[in-house]
């Protein structure tokens, strides 16, 4: 057993060491895999804020992941075709600048989370799980049948978007960008969790009545957390689209919502680094089990099942000492 803080540093080091080693050994695909893990981790960190700290089990975070992805897809495809998005009283052009795309992705998924959260937070428990799922499905079917941006075919972006001063097509540089964002977001979430806001959020999760009696507006508190959560997952979606240079409605599918949830539970609910470990382990499982057999989903299912049944608290919960301020 080690302290969670120490464990977190070990995790970060590993996360850098693997692609660094792959870079030296000239194994670009391993870097791509690590980038994928980092991006999924970011999506998980977003959901974990709502799910872990706030106790809001959202089964529809694919909606924000997809929203971020389409923010990238739509902006970049217009830039690629030199075709303005809106050409009326004023002109809106597409762009292939990553920072601009990120801002648009964050803002649009935050707005979406505000809308969905405002409606969904009227319910609780299983109803909340299911109504978020329903909103996710709504966007999935919309994206499939709406012809303007490719429908089920999705959108291909032939060249990765630009970041000033870097060559984003180089796997290690793109990994660097994603890793830096993940670290910044982790730092932000850590500060947030320790702030009065985070403590109140966790308090409302542990005991809603008590939070109310001390005068906290629980609905508003949760809505803010939900919006931040959606915005982070949306940012991950934009990066994921750039990793694949492709967006499609599958980003909205309920399987993605489920996967993001799996990262959190594998790693440890409400642990800052839970989704990071969970995503990394999931990617490793997917990569190595896939080579074992055509029926590798059976093994994946069995491992997940074993984790839920026998390893409560996830991987971090098994490895790290209990820390008092964490709920779950």
């Amino acid at each position: 057993m080690i302290r969670e803080g120490t464990l977190n540093i070990v995790i970060l080091c590993l996360l850098v060491a693997v692609p660094a080693y792959a870079y030296v050994m000239n194994e670009p695909f391993t870097i791509t895999l690590a980038t994928r893990a980092v991006i999924f981790a970011l999506a998980g960190v977003g959901l974990n804020l709502a799910l872990g700290q706030g106790g809001l089990v959202s089964f529809g975070h694919a909606a924000y992941f997809g929203m971020g992805g389409y923010a990238m897809g739509i902006l970049a495809s217009h830039a690629q075709n030199y075709d303005p998005i809106f050409d009326g009283a004023f002109l809106i052009e597409g762009t292939n600048s990553m920072p601009v795309i990120w801002v648009v992705a964050v803002v649009s998924s935050a707005l979406l989370a505000l809308l969905i959260g405002a409606l969904s937070l009227r319910t609780s428990g299983v109803y909340f799980i299911m109504v978020t799922l329903a909103f996710g499905q709504m966007f999935y079917y919309f994206a499939i049948s709406w012809p303007a941006y490719g429908g089920e075919d999705g959108l291909s972006i032939y060249v990765r978007n630009q970041f000033p001063g870097l060559n984003t097509l180089d796997p290690i540089q793109f990994f660097g960008i994603c890793f830096a964002i993940l670290c910044l977001v982790l730092l932000f979430v850590d500060r947030l969790n320790k702030s009065p806001f985070g403590l109140a959020l966790n308090g409302a999760h542990q005991n809603e009545e008590r939070a109310r009696t001390v005068g906290i507006n629980v609905y508003k508190l949760r809505l803010v957390a939900f919006v931040i959560s959606g915005a982070i997952t949306g940012l991950a979606g934009a990066l994921f689209a750039d990793l694949n240079r492709f967006v499609s409605p599958t980003m909205f599918s309920w399987a993605i919502s489920g996967e993001i949830m799996i990262f959190i539970i594998l790693g440890g609910v409400a642990r800052l680094f839970g989704p990071v470990v969970g995503a990394a382990v999931y990617i490793l499982l997917e990569h190595f089990l896939g080579g074992l057999s055509d029926y590798w989903f059976i093994y994946l299912g069995a491992i997940l099942l074993g984790m839920v049944l026998f390893a409560k608290g996830g991987i971090i919960g098994k490895l790290a000492k209990k820390e008092t301020h964490h709920g779950g």
Partner: peptide, 12 residues
């Protein structure tokens, strides 16, 4: 949450 994940694993 645990129920969702465990039964999701059962689907696989």
């Amino acid at each position: 949450l645990d129920q969702v994940l465990a039964t999701f694993a059962l689907i696989l």
